[in-house]
Nucleic acid binder design. Structure first.
Length: 589
DNA sequence: CGTTTTTGACCAGCGC
DNA sequence: GCGCTGGTCAAAAACG
């Protein structure tokens, strides 16, 4: 049992589920054994698990249970059908479901299908009454007709959803193909550089270094911060370690990272021994894509750039969400290794380290907001070097992608606008949440504000922010924000599920979303929005997914970078389409 | 007994 | 050089 993380898999409430099974329309959820999934026996193949949990999760203690007849929660389909479903469901509930089971769980799952059984029993009971056979027959016929119509409608909706799923699949495949092509090209380039730069030495060192561990299946390319930083920074504490740090630094720099790079370095071993848990060569047994994006530092041609990067390699991803829990649920296992009182905040800051794999460099800081203690500020740092459960994929991708985005200096102005728009468009429908991508020296940070209050105290702007009107945004981005939401969402989740299967990182290209603005029925947006607004953990997970997409977009455009030595802040606090951009040069975090 | 949390101490970086 | 702050370590305590 993992005590340290209140967010162990068991406790993962909505977020993990949602991220797991977003678009599964006709398959039974794997987690149905989970108490949270044991809703009703009606959760059959015709039921959409997505829909069910959104409105029914009894464990969502962060928000009050939704009203029984809230049609919005069932608003997966068209308006008229929705009303029909709601009406019939309500009728069914009022007629027959007076059991002790929470009614929300019962009839919301029924949609129309359960009417068959309930009404049948109802008919049966009516037979007992003394009703004339004619009227009884008529009544039965009517009901039969209604049920048949309902069944037909459900079939159509099912077909519609299937089509949607198919569309998403097709898009995903295209994206994946594109991504793989890019990665292949990148890999070839890196190989060339390695050959030119005398990489043979590294390889020799790696081969003779004893335990060789594949660092990653695929390197997303640009450096973030995790491993190499980790040694130098984390080892900071002890002088003994410090003496070893330079070696580690050099070693890690020399060890190539391209695709399937092998990593082993005495320096790293030395470093990792610091960690009480004897990490050593276990570093990245599984080679996860999040691992060591430290890649580029060996390339001789880039040494200057790399040195510059080394000075700001601690990219961070911060998520603000309202939560009563001590930590937001992100699917990973964490061990607390420290707690400090931070200046200016009466709430202590807790330091956690990922314990899902020995030597995982990912850390996070959790601190409550001084102004509003219901707001939990979680800052992630580093990249996982191990496979992650699907529930953790989104957040982990966030750290990877965001760090990559910030550290690679890849944010062109066009990208900034595009991504900020994407993000804010994605978040706005669900609440007044603010998505803030900010980078303040010395550690660039991507911050997602998922608290629903655009309180300026909570989201201080840097004084030198500028307002940049939206421009150059694809029509379908600015025209249909509501419809964009499910696209982003679905794509992110779908990607995630793919990731978990492939055990590799994968970032989506947001432009793909813009190409199919109507893929998902718009009414889905309402349901998703409601769910998002309902649970902070969920919002955090969503934020992670979205951010990962954005990071992917960034990576996709890495080739035509401008510089981002200046810090960038993108925010949208008004929802009217304006994006705030800033260059701040704050000295301290 | 193994793992996690707590907590005081240590260290680096930064500003004065 | 000194003090402050953030980050980390590691021994001891707590927990299951």
């Amino acid at each position: 049992m993992v005590r340290g993380c209140g967010l162990s898999m068991d406790s993962d409430p909505i977020g993990s589920f949602f991220l797991h099974k977003p678009i599964v329309l006709n398959s039974f959820p794997e987690d149905t054994n989970h108490p949270k999934w044991k809703l009703t026996p009606h959760n059959n193949m015709d039921t959409i698990p997505f829909q069910v949990n959104l409105s029914c999760s009894p464990n969502n203690h962060h928000s009050p249970p939704p009203p029984l007849h809230n049609t919005t929660e069932m608003d997966f389909f068209s308006d008229n059908t929705n009303h029909n479903v709601s009406a019939s469901a309500s009728a069914s509930a009022s007629n027959h479901h007076h059991s002790t089971t929470p009614p929300t769980l019962e009839f919301k799952l029924n949609t129309g299908l359960n009417l068959l059984t309930t009404n049948t029993s109802s008919d049966q009971s009516m037979v007992d009454d003394e009703i004339s056979p004619n009227s009884e027959d008529r009544r039965a016929e009517n009901k039969l007709a209604v049920l048949q119509a309902e069944l037909e409608r459900m079939k159509r909706e099912n077909q519609k959803l299937r089509d949607t799923l198919h569309q998403v699949n097709v898009n995903y495949d295209a994206l994946q193909m594109h991504f793989m092509n890019l990665m292949q090209q990148k890999g070839e380039e890196v190989e060339e550089q390695e050959v030119i730069g005398g990489k043979s030495e590294e390889k020799k060192q790696g081969e003779s270094g004893g335990v060789l561990v594949p660092r990653q299946f695929m390197d997303l390319g640009l450096a973030t911060n995790a491993d190499t930083d980790e040694p130098s920074s984390s080892s900071g504490g002890r002088s003994q370690d410090r003496s070893g740090s330079p070696n580690a630094e050099v070693a890690s720099k020399e060890l190539g990272t391209s695709m399937n790079e092998n990593v082993n370095d005495e320096g790293c071993d030395k470093e990792k021994k610091e960690y009480g848990r004897g990490v050593e060569s276990e570093d990245s047994p599984s080679g996860h894509a999040f691992a060591g994006d430290k890649v580029p530092r060996f390339s001789p041609q880039k040494s200057n750039v790399e040195h510059a990067e080394a000075t700001m390699r601690k990219a961070r991803v911060s998520v603000r969400a309202r939560s009563e829990a001590p930590m937001i649920t992100d699917g990973c296992q964490w061990r607390k290794y420290g707690q400090k009182m931070a200046k200016g905040n009466p709430c202590p800051r807790a330091y956690y380290r990922c314990t899902m794999a020995a030597g995982c460099p990912v850390r996070k800081q959790v601190q409550r907001c001084a102004e509003d203690r219901t707001v939990l500020n979680t800052t992630y740092e580093g990249n996982h070097n191990h496979p992650l459960p699907p529930a953790a994929m989104a957040m982990a991708q966030t750290t990877s992608s965001a760090a990559r985005m910030l550290l690679s200096g890849s944010m062109s102005s066009a990208d900034s606008i595009m991504n900020a728009n994407l993000l804010t468009r994605a978040l706005l429908p669900c609440s007044s949440s603010i998505a803030t991508i900010s980078a303040s020296a010395p550690f660039p940070t991507v911050t997602l504000d998922l608290t629903q209050s655009p309180n300026p105290l909570q989201f201080p702007r840097h004084p030198n922010q500028l307002q940049i009107p939206l421009q150059g945004i694809p029509q379908n981005f600015s025209n249909s924000p509501a419809s964009l939401m499910p696209q982003i969402f679905g794509q992110a989740l779908y990607n995630q599920s793919k990731f978990s299967g492939l055990q590799m990182s994968h970032d989506a290209d947001p432009s793909q979303f813009g190409n199919h603005p109507q893929q998902v029925p718009p009414h889905l947006t309402d349901t998703v929005s409601a769910a998002i607004a309902a649970d902070p953990n969920f919002t955090a997970a969503l934020a992670a997914a979205i951010t990962s997409i954005i990071g992917g977009a960034q990576q996709h455009n890495n080739s035509n970078n401008t510089n981002n030595n200046g810090n960038m802040t993108l925010s949208n606090s008004t929802g009217n389409g304006n994006i705030t951009s800033s260059n701040n040069t704050n000295g301290k975090q």
